[in-house]
């Protein structure tokens, strides 16, 4: 497996009137060819910011501060917008945005909205574009005649399928999926996950799968990247996070304990008291320390580095440095 995308010490801040919000703060990871990496964490931890940053479109007032995003070894941050549009966005990396299925405009047909993407990013003739749309609708399990339908005539699952088809058009290698099933019912969610697995096989895609749901992440992600307050706190394989060994970082551990499980009835479901920190002025030391039940002196003073605690398993916690 070779590396497809490499994020190096990325910092992306939102420059607001109250100060810089450090949404992505010195974050590094690598995505391999054919791999699915899961980004998981509470709302506001920077998952979506990371997604849009990789697509080279941080939401204003967000700006890159430092670091690199290497796609096939080329840093995309300094590239001119025109270049990104022609060669990167949708050609190499596409994204299924959060709630995308609810952002389809109600006044245009599905076909016209899909056509718009093709017009923007390719030079296909109209008839070629139409046959391509029909082909991709078939791939995601929709009948080609829905091009004439309006969004309100389709169910949530059908709209999400259409949005996924649109992300696939230009044969990207990487697809960023931001909460692609959050607004859907469990059965439809399972159907969409099955579809994504099939597409991944068929087109040898790599996914960045963003969700707040650790249980869902277990279904699809080869590696799980747990984020807290703009940083990676733990990164490990599916087995390292969900296997018998249980996760190593207290945050992951407690997030997992807060996930209700259908077949394991517990008397008291756990929760994490408090709220994530203000990213304009994050707490000194470990950012999780104010909410952590295992925190000790050092945690409040110094920030723990992300270190490899076993092959392929990274975690940022001072507990690993104690004997």
């Amino acid at each position: 497996m070779n590396s497809l995308l490499k994020v190096e010490n990325l910092q992306m801040h939102y420059f607001t009137s109250k100060g810089a919000v450090r949404a992505i703060d010195d974050l590094s990871f690598e995505l391999m060819r054919g791999e699915t990496i899961g980004l998981v964490g509470e709302s506001g931890c920077g998952k979506t910011s990371l997604g849009t940053s990789i697509l080279r479109m941080p939401t204003p007032p967000g700006r890159y501060v430092s670091g690199k995003i290497l796609v096939d070894g080329v840093d995309v941050i300094p590239l001119p917008e025109k270049e990104v549009r022609r060669n990167i966005r949708w050609q190499k990396i596409s994204m299924v945005f959060q709630g995308a299925m609810n952002c389809l405009t109600p006044v245009y047909t599905i076909g016209r909205q899909m056509m718009e993407t093709l017009n923007e990013h390719s030079d296909l003739s109209r008839s070629d574009a139409e046959s391509l749309i029909a082909e991709y609708l078939g791939l995601v399990g929709l009948s080609p005649e829905i091009v004439q339908r309006y969004p309100h005539e389709l169910s949530g699952g059908m709209k999400q399928r259409a949005v996924i088809a649109t992300a696939l058009f230009l044969k990207p290698e990487i697809i960023i999926l931001d909460e692609p099933t959050t607004a859907l019912d469990v059965i439809v969610q399972a159907q969409i996950i099955n579809l994504l697995k099939k597409l991944k096989q068929q087109f040898s895609l790599s996914f960045i799968f963003i969700t707040h749901d650790l249980a869902l992440e277990a279904e699809i992600s080869d590696r799980i990247c747990v984020m807290y307050a703009g940083k990676i706190v733990e990164l490990g394989s599916n087995a390292q996070i969900y296997g018998t060994q249980s996760p190593k970082h207290p945050y992951t551990e407690r997030l997992l304990a807060a996930t209700p499980r259908l077949f394991k009835k517990v008397e008291q479901l756990q929760f994490i008291p408090g709220t994530p920190p203000d990213l304009i002025a994050p707490p000194k030391g470990c950012r999780f320390s104010p909410r952590c039940n295992k925190a000790f002196d050092r945690c409040f003073q110094e920030e723990p580095p992300l270190i490899e605690i076993e092959p392929g398993h990274m975690s940022a916690c001072w507990l690993h440095h104690r004997g």
Binding site: V186, A190, I193, L214, A218, E219, I241, Y242
Partner: peptide
Amino acid sequence: QALIEAVPEPATGKIDIIKELPIYGEI
């Protein structure tokens, strides 16, 4: 039964499996 089988559980070993759902289509 279909509703229950569709619920994801946080356990390892499911990435390569296409879940067989005992239900067709949508409501």
